[in-house]
């Protein structure tokens, strides 16, 4: 006997919601998924009428579903937003070429303007060239740091008021776990925020409309909507420690499906003891980007790449920032330490 949809009690259910366990028909699932994103946007006051919003588009499932739903809700509920796709070309042959093709198709399907900024034009280095110098072990440090700034710079170029990213509930929960495992209390406090307000010059506010959407439901949504997305993982895969956290989260979800939301709830309700030192946010002395050090992470990484000292940006070498800034030569001992990268 077919199972009836628990929402309309009329049509045949085609899926079991990973988030709540309810059996739903296609139409009711679409409605529930979209309505939840809408409620999140309303409740968190993410946008204002008339704003220009850049959707960070990578061609992957999260950003493809985000672009689709944002476009749909903007029309359905008359948000009055001017939407555009914002893409970063890291210069990873094979991976990026294909995913950018997907983004370009999305642009046509959704009739949204697309802007692509490349690492090469921003930094003078492609990821492929970086990997040649630093090896596979540390490349994600570069990938992540450069990516964050690239989006900001692209957004500034396009005069975008806000960026929204495809981070989903699984990503947020995983980040909570990661920050606990790393003992990073400052990020632990920040990472569950649904939006970052403008933190300084050159930083565009960001938000995560899919913050409460389960990854599995995003996949289901894309599948039933037959959305066109690129499904290969970044070939320069994330580090092992995050991999452990991810596996742990998946295991938790299989024991108790609400775990993902439960972890986010935990993160939202943590309270940090007074007197615990938090890094002071300032700006980078070289490029003006937000940074807790004299030089921002991306400037230090670049300096390391350009000088042929790739380790400079990877370890903790804050002491050297002043030297770099004033263009003093490093001692032989310092050079030696920073040159060797163990692969």
């Amino acid at each position: 006997m077919p199972v009836l949809c628990s929402s309309c009690d009329d049509k045949r259910a085609v899926l079991k919601r990973p988030k709540t366990g309810h059996s739903l028909c296609k139409a009711c699932f679409f409605r529930a998924f979209e309505e939840e994103v809408h409620q999140t946007i309303l409740a968190a006051n993410l946008f204002k009428h008339g704003e220009i919003v850049g959707i960070a588009a990578s061609g992957g499932k999260d950003s493809t579903v985000l672009a689709h739903v944002m476009k749909l809700l903007n029309e359905r509920y008359n948000y009055g937003l001017e939407l555009m796709l914002l893409s970063v070309d890291e210069g990873i042959s094979g991976y990026r070429d294909d995913s950018l093709e997907t983004v370009k198709r999305n642009q046509q399907q959704y009739e949204l303007p697309l802007k692509i900024v490349s690492y090469e034009e921003l930094y003078g280095w492609t990821m492929d060239a970086i990997v040649k110098q630093v090896g596979l072990k540390n490349n994600c440090t570069f990938c992540g740091v450069f990516r964050r700034q690239a989006l900001d710079r692209g957004a500034l170029m396009l005069r975008v008021d806000k960026i929204c990213t495809g981070h989903n509930a699984d990503d947020v929960a995983e980040t909570v776990l990661m920050n606990i495992l790393r003992g990073d209390i400052a990020r632990l406090r920040r990472c569950t925020a649904i939006s970052t307000s403008s933190e300084g010059e050159g930083v565009v506010p960001r938000c995560k409309p899919l913050k409460y959407a389960y990854e599995k439901e995003i996949v289901l949504y894309a599948y039933f909507k037959k959305l066109d997305y690129f499904s290969t993982e970044c070939i320069y895969s994330p580090n092992a420690y995050r991999g452990h956290a991810r596996t742990f989260l998946k295991d938790l979800e299989s024991v108790r499906p609400s775990s993902i939301m439960d972890i986010i709830h935990s993160g939202e309700n943590l309270s940090v003891r007074e007197g615990v030192k938090m890094p002071v946010q300032g700006t980078c002395n070289r490029c003006g980007y937000i940074s807790s050090q004299t030089l921002c992470k991306s400037c230090v990484l670049l300096e390391g790449l350009n000088r042929g000292l790739p380790k400079l940006g990877i370890g903790k070498h804050h002491r050297l920032h002043d030297k770099i800034l004033t263009q003093q030569p490093l001692t032989e001992k310092e050079e030696r330490k920073l040159k060797s990268v163990n692969f």
Binding site: C28, E36, Q39, A44
Partner: peptide, 24 residues
């Protein structure tokens, strides 16, 4: 108690999900 259903919280999002999946 940590269940004040504030705007845009995991707690209220869960309530909304449950409600939207049941007969209206």
């Amino acid at each position: 108690l940590d269940t004040a259903a504030e705007n845009a919280s995991a707690f209220s999002a869960t309530l909304i999900s449950e409600q939207l999946s049941q007969t209206q």
